[in-house]
Design a binder for these strands. Structure first.
Lengths: 223, 223
DNA sequence: TCGCCAGGCTTACAGCGTAAGCTTACACCG
DNA sequence: CGGTGTAAGCTTACGCTGTAAGCCTGGCGA
């Protein structure tokens, strides 16, 4: 009977369990509040015990970034749909990345501030280059294209996540900021704010706008 | 004579002096090593004395970001050159921003992770909107255009700063990474690396490539 | 049965931002 | 001239961080 309690209520740690707990914790409290002590607590364990399964905190951050990348839809052309093509596939990839990063608001900053060479990252990049290569881009062009699209995804998502107001607040916020941007000093900024106040411009940043500029441009490069 | 030593060898602190010292220190040791104690030391002062001149560390970070933005060339059409136009002006702005951020490698991350409403930032944004408005863009279009261009600037610069190898090392690095990206598993990534090794692709990310896609696209939108 | 050792725990250290309160020197005023 | 208010420095202390070093213990292989 004693041998029955192989898993004594706590399954024991593992790198996998540590990383998934870290991902959950980062989603709940933000990556800036993810500390080794707190992560240990979430796992019912002392902070130092984590170091038996990960090298250090950076190792954890690399790990959870790769988990997030693994959630992004890899670009693939749907062979059952004759109308599908590289452009649609790359758009789906971009939208999927954008959506995924919005679900993990701490991720874009980490993505941009470290080299990501986890298995999910490698697979993601490989599929992207493959999609562009199959479309007819040279290696160099595929490299540049991939880079341009990803800059847009990361830059846009970060700016959006960072903006501290909700769309429905824009008009109110613009109104209250107006005294700080007098027309005499900042005529165009003032004018823009006025447009938002008057409901003539919603002030919404549009992910597709920039993405279309890039994808349409790439299509022209291809011809 | 005693009244002569108004400035007793050390000029005394001021918000300006604190911010400029912080900027210098950030450039020298990186923003992650910029601590209140270290900044105090650089100014010959205890850490807590800084709080008489700035509200807290975030206040300092906001301040040095605005100092950096102040170094970026504001977009202006040269009236003495009849061939000049909004597109050239916006390109100059983008290149200037890119160059400036490369001189302050810690800055892009801060730029993207906080709301910047310092005087230099406001002026910078106002001039940008103004340039686009004068070119004929609506407020909404100018907003989208500005956003698309800045996403590229920040995203590209961050990726470049973050990449831990020098261009002349690319071939060597690609060679040593090759075993980790076997052709069977990552065919396209492997192929790309092979191109770099063989000198058929320099692997250099090209700031102008993505910028041109966006600017050319905007020009077409304008017509 | 013995010894090994993986996987936990404990303690400790240097560094962080900053709250709270103390000290000093100078400006001003009656 | 004496007295007072205040700006600008200093000191101490608190709770937090990542992690180095070493200890303990239960289970497994020989």
């Amino acid at each position: 009977m004693a041998s029955d309690k192989r898993k004594p209520a706590r399954p024991g740690l593992s790198q996998d369990r540590v990383l998934h707990a870290a991902l959950t914790l980062a989603d709940e409290v933000g990556v800036e509040s993810l500390s080794m002590r707190r992560l240990g607590e979430a796992l019912g364990v002392q902070a130092m015990s984590l170091y038996k399964h990960v090298a250090n905190k950076d190792d954890i951050l690399d790990g959870i970034v790769d988990l997030v990348i693994g959630q992004i839809a890899v670009p693939e052309i749907n062979r059952n749909n004759p109308g599908d093509n590289w452009k649609r596939a790359m758009r789906r990839r971009a939208v999927s990345a954008h959506d995924t990063l919005l679900r993990h608001p701490w991720a874009p900053m980490l993505l941009l501030s470290r080299v990501n060479v986890g298995p999910a990252s490698l697979r993601y990049v490989d599929a992207t280059i493959g999609c562009l290569r199959n479309a007819g881009f040279s290696y160099a062009m595929a490299d540049h294209a991939w880079n341009a699209i990803d800059n847009h995804i990361y830059g846009f998502t970060l700016q959006k996540l960072n903006f501290p107001f909700q769309p429905e607040e824009y008009a109110t916020v613009a109104q209250s900021f107006l005294p700080q941007i007098p027309a005499a000093q900042y005529p165009h900024l003032n004018g823009m704010a006025q447009q938002v106040i008057d409901g003539k411009h919603d002030g919404l940043a549009d992910f597709d706008f920039g993405l279309n500029l890039i994808l349409d441009g790439l299509e022209r490069v291809l011809r």
